[in-house]
Write a protein that binds this DNA or RNA. Structure first.
Lengths: 238, 238
DNA sequence: TACTATACGGAATAGCGTTCCGGTTATGCA
DNA sequence: TGCATAACCGGAACGCTATTCCGTATAGTA
């Protein structure tokens, strides 16, 4: 144990489902999530097994540590670094998160969900075209603050293979609905899919040597303008 | 001779300067390029030294091998793989190309030069706006056929640090001149610099899981449309 | 032909990620 | 309450790649 004499359960609580839409997530190799059902005292604890208390504590520590390490060294921070930061051995890290992508998923799940959930809200508050723009802005924000995430998404490293699928599954439908509305009202062109955009924006959100986040935002904005070009509105095109 | 009976000089010849514009390249840690000055017999050969014949042969083999390996495994192909392919030891690889970026530079130099040199030609043959579009298309083509190059450019790995600078130095002015003309004629907006575009397109050219090159081309086209959006009409910015 | 600067190859070193295993501890039951 | 056992822990061991080092071989020259 390096730091934290983890007497008090690490308060991260990063594991329990947060968003309303987190229901459809298919599975989880680590049984980390969902201790919420522990509330009922009468609960049958026959359920296969519940994470042992120390294990749960370690998972929490790891998530907290990973969050920190990701912010510091990017999503490909050395495994040792994360384990040390959490005060556990690397073996423990790998047991709970066999794939790097599992860890990333767990760390960002909440934020991804929040991003997806923002879509209906935006759709209700703005005209379709604006909603798309706003949502993409929010998505950009998310990606840009996690430098390295976008890179990992496209790294080709098998350790991250599960990531694109996961992101697409959560965010695809969200953006898709906004896009449908916007193309229906002819505010943006119809030949670009949600998937196209999600990937493209992720690419544009990668850190660039001496530029800051502002650069990425400007380029995403440029791409969005391309979405409007030839949609039928201001341009005499077509 | 340890290696392969490379009797015939490897015909790559990838080292001698090829393009007219290759004059302004600043330096070269490896003395690989420019054996041309060997012609004059009266030449003071006090000049430090000329590459020994076997060394030159190895450099050629390495460039050829690297080209192949890059195409196969990406620009971060294992050093051993390249050395084996060239029939030399890794020591030889590192002696001639201490940095991974040196090797990449040497392999793609000619193509980068060709790309830069295409700018004046396009400028003469097309209206400014079209010229920009065409040039970017050519640039896209270059990047897309070198899957992994774009990723390396932004990897943050110190081994590639020299790359962005080199690319920018060669391509920046080329695109810059086209851009100036196009903004002058109000065909595209003026608030995006050559550097901005060069980086953005490089980002968009990164390979995406299950999509092909076509995807990257479409996204670049989308970005270019963004360039046209609000060029003269809605945005009278100076 | 003999000599020397130069280059060669691959062994040695170093830093990762990932797996494995002997020891430890929480949990369920008598 | 005390014990048997499954679950868990930490870190050593392993494999892979990049990078450096140095004794040996060779090209070029007198």
């Amino acid at each position: 144990m390096t730091e934290h004499e983890n007497t008090a359960p690490t308060e991260t609580g990063s594991t329990e489902p947060a968003g309303p839409s987190s229901a459809d997530r298919p599975d989880g190799p680590d049984r980390a999530g969902g201790p919420d059902r522990a509330g009922g005292p009468g609960e049958r604890q026959r359920a296969p097994r519940r994470l042992r208390a120390d294990a749960q504590r370690n998972v929490d520590s790891l998530l907290q540590a990973a969050k920190t390490a990701f912010a510091t060294s990017g999503v490909d921070a050395p495994a040792k670094e994360i384990a040390d930061l959490a005060g556990v051995g690397v073996g423990t890290l790998y047991r709970h998160f066999p794939q790097r992508s599992d860890l990333i998923k767990a760390v960002f799940q909440r934020e991804v969900d929040a991003c997806a959930d923002a879509a209906p809200t935006l759709a209700a508050a703005h005209p379709p075209g604006v909603a798309v723009e706003q949502w993409l802005r929010r998505y950009t924000e998310f990606l840009a603050t996690k430098r390295g995430l976008a890179t990992a998404l496209h790294s080709g490293d098998p350790a991250f293979d599960a990531l694109p699928g996961y992101f697409m599954q959560r965010l695809g439908p969200a953006l898709g609905s906004l896009l449908d509305a916007a193309t229906a009202s002819a505010e943006i062109r119809a030949d670009i899919s949600a998937k196209d955009l999600l990937y493209a924006v992720a690419l544009l959100c990668q850190p660039v040597s001496d530029e800051g986040v502002t650069y990425n935002e400007r380029m995403v904005a440029l791409l969005i303008d391309g979405l409007r070009y030839g949609a039928g509105t201001s341009r005499p095109a077509s």
